[in-house]
Design a protein around this nucleic acid. Structure first.
Lengths: 109, 109
DNA sequence: TACGATGTACGACGAAAATCGTACATAAAC
DNA sequence: GTTTATGTACGATTTTCGTCGTACATCGTA
């Protein structure tokens, strides 16, 4: 009965165009802006009102496999956080620039 | 006999997710990194060896309509440049972060 | 004007992505 | 063990994207 496992790429495997692609979808960008503002959040609380669960799972998988987020199971739920240090280490200033933009288009599509 | 015209979005119309999408394709990212390094360049000189002209036109159109680049006709050719001030005004630090990454994945796909 | 050079428009094709319903898996509580 | 809450896996569908050939437009020059 192993706990749930999630693949997370190593820092050295992060590529710029993959990260940019992950952030180029309005829904995923809104998620990341939420995380930048509020820190770790339960996946079910992210845009819960406007996106079906299976769709959110899909987007979170893309963010996770691009190395942008970390998924940590906690009981029944999943806690999502940014891999800020990792992304910063490889692409310094990128998340800062995105966070600086802030809530201007943080709403869901 | 009007000269060729190209649509360029106003600074206020730039959106983060559109810009990130424009930069998320390896070919387009390579073009932008070239422009960051060398300044204005003729479109025909960009990745000329590896990308057919109609394909390059397509990518340059996406970059231009996202507000990342400016296209300026000069005789038979088209000179492409980054709209650095405009992108910087709206998303400070974004291009800096991308340029900092530099040539690590500047090669074509 | 006719020609060669450069770039665009358009269309077709295949690949990839976004959405989401349903079925299944996991974890906690009863 | 059963139930309930949460999230994933899978598949189907539709849309979008990337590629590129061909035809056309623009520009300079002979």
């Amino acid at each position: 009965m192993s706990p749930r496992k999630f693949f997370h790429p190593d820092v050295s495997e992060l590529t710029l165009h993959r990260i940019l692609f992950a952030l180029s979808d309005p829904t995923r960008l809104a998620v990341v802006l939420d995380l930048l503002k509020d820190g770790e959040r339960a996946s079910g609380d992210l845009l819960a009102e406007s996106v079906p669960r299976s769709t959110m799972t899909h987007h979170l998988k893309i963010l996770r496999e691009a190395g942008v987020t970390r998924t940590r199971p906690e009981g029944m739920r999943c806690l999502i956080s940014l891999r800020r240090e990792d992304v910063d280490a490889r692409f310094p200033g990128l998340l800062d620039a995105i966070m600086a933009h802030g809530g201007a288009e943080a709403s869901a599509p």
